[in-house]
Design a protein around this nucleic acid. Structure first.
Lengths: 249, 249
DNA sequence: TTTCTATATTGGTCATACCAATCTTCACCT
DNA sequence: AGGTGAAGATTGGTATGACCAATATAGAAA
């Protein structure tokens, strides 16, 4: 990974990159396991035939990627990188493209619709209780845009979690930062009087999971998303009809 | 990103990390755009009050992450990181967990089922032609496990591409490396005589897109996946019944 | 004006020295 | 004997200066 796609292998790269790739490969190949301690810098520098500053460039890079934890006076320890890094990186990559916020929702729908099917099979009692709890807190925070958005997120992430699929959960977590933005902004422009319908939609989705009916659950979830999308369009139009006359005046 | 989740902000970290975060933030905030050239190392070192080796640790780290391209004699240039890095990283992270290869398929199904719906709306003539082409090459490579697997992948990735959703495409690309493994291994154990059924399934899926029928397309795609899963289970059982007698003998 | 060469700029590397945090060891005291 | 604490060794953190190599720039020559 990391620049590996660019220079694949032994592209007579610089010393630092050579060391970086060598150590990285030892980690991904499992030769170096989490918790292992690397030899001292001075020793490694000799082993790789580079100076200590160069060796340190490689070590620091690995540390920034989460492959190493370097502790002064102690040593450099291998550690398993956290998914959170992927999340941040993905966020940045997607944020570069225009209109991502609209598009990211498609990924969200994709993950949730598959997750809810799995949830119908695998959801445990605890999963259902957690989702139910987020439903009630959804009711309690109808008036608060921030807390309401948070409850909304917990409901949906609860579904994903109930799928017991690490991969789906990982991807969903990766999307979460971008998701939060659209959540908040969407909820801000939804007419307050209509929120009750949204609550009912959540309830129906939840009940479908309880009944263990995958097709029905996905169908209701899609309707829920479609309704949300509908409201968003309407409020956009409403925004326009407010702003346009101002420009004419 | 990158260790940011661990130490969030200004955690009185070392000099290298301080510089790293500062420069990284300038990139993600858009202050530094792709193509921009950074000041010379010696100058930057002064600006950040660090020595050049330390400054270089930060620059090298950014380069390894794909944020910078460093050219000897010229300078360090900002560049937009490639998704491929995320892909590799995700691959590694997920590969650490046991039984991900089975689970990753769930994410694949999730993305494709949403993508095929969008494809029914947005697929262009070119998209359909591309998918059709992969269908014919699927027919031509029925006997070759490797080429056949590749054609299969191109068919499915063609669907995702036809969704015209950058986010879905990005995620799919991120899953691709892991997907290829399961693709190949799956195709290897599918009885050769039954592959024709799989080809027919692909055809039906394709025709549903041509007919612009989202529900039907997703339904057929899910059936296709279910059938593939079925075969996988059967061949696993077949494998067992082959190996078990050997142990007895 | 074009081309080429000398120079300046800039990244790449090295060696060394010193500081700071940690670890290890061992003498010392209870 | 066992705990305790301080001195030394180990190890990462940083700084300085020097030199090489690739590139860019400016000026001279055609």
């Amino acid at each position: 990974m990391v620049a590996a796609s660019r220079l694949d292998d032994s592209h007579d790269t610089g010393g630092a990159e050579r060391v970086f790739l060598a150590l990285r490969d030892r980690v991904v190949s499992g030769e170096l396991k989490a918790g292992d301690r690397l030899p001292p810098e001075r020793e490694l520098a000799l082993k790789f035939n580079v100076s200590r500053p160069i060796l340190r460039e490689a070590l620091r890079s690995l540390a920034m990627l989460g492959f190493l934890e370097i502790i002064q006076g102690s040593g450099a320890y291998v550690r398993q990188p956290d998914i959170a890094l992927v999340s941040d990186f993905l966020t940045f990559c997607m944020a570069q493209q225009p209109d991502v916020l609209d598009d990211i929702i498609q990924s969200r729908i994709a993950i949730e619709c598959q997750a809810i099917r799995l949830a119908c099979e695998k959801a445990s009692e605890a999963d259902l209780n957690r989702i139910a709890a987020s439903l009630t807190s959804l009711l309690d925070t109808l008036e608060d845009p921030v807390l309401g958005g948070q409850a909304d997120y917990e409901f949906h992430s609860g579904i994903v979690r109930a799928s017991h699929s690490p991969a789906l959960t990982t991807l969903y977590r990766a999307l979460t930062p971008l998701l939060m933005q659209s959540h908040v902004s969407r909820r801000r422009i939804v007419p307050s009087g209509i929120r009750n319908f949204l609550v009912d939609a959540h309830k129906e989705v939840f009940l479908s999971i309880v009944d263990r009916k995958p097709d029905e659950a996905e169908k209701r979830l899609r309707e829920h998303f479609a309704i949300g999308d509908e409201y968003r369009r309407k409020s956009l139009i409403a925004e326009f009809s407010k702003t346009l006359p101002n420009k004419q005046a």
